[in-house]
């Protein structure tokens, strides 16, 4: 089963609100990863973000589940800036 989270209505075009990122992680990401289900984070329409936001969104599952989380997490329509930040958080979370 796949769970898709469309982020734009939650965080607007510049994703910076870590409180919302934390809430999404806790309520929408972790419960599904725990059940070994795929989660698609849909970034359509988002033009930028911060490292802190992306960290709050995905660092915990990466720290807990390691590369297994990478297989279950999919990043849809991430612009180059988001790809850079997501790549950074993945890099240091899997050290």
């Amino acid at each position: 089963m796949t769970h898709t989270i469309v982020l734009l209505p939650l965080v607007h075009d510049f994703a910076q609100n870590k409180d919302i990122a934390t809430s999404i992680r806790q309520k929408e990401i972790m419960p599904f990863l725990t059940k070994n289900e795929e989660v698609i984070l849909d970034f359509s329409g988002i033009t930028g973000s911060t490292q802190s936001f992306i960290h709050a969104l995905i660092a915990e599952p990466l720290q807990i589940y390691g590369t297994v989380a990478l297989k279950l997490l999919k990043f849809k329509s991430a612009c180059p800036i988001l790809q850079t930040l997501i790549g950074l958080v993945i890099d240091y979370s899997l050290i």
């Binding site: 802190s52 960290h55 660092a59 720290q63 950074l88 240091y92």
Partner: peptide, 20 residues
């Protein structure tokens, strides 16, 4: 890089990584 007041764990904790 990598220093945060909340933890000295490499990669940070669930909220901070010491990158901002």
């Amino acid at each position: 890089p990598g220093v945060t007041g909340t933890t000295n764990f490499s990669g940070g904790n669930t909220q901070n990584a010491g990158a901002g």
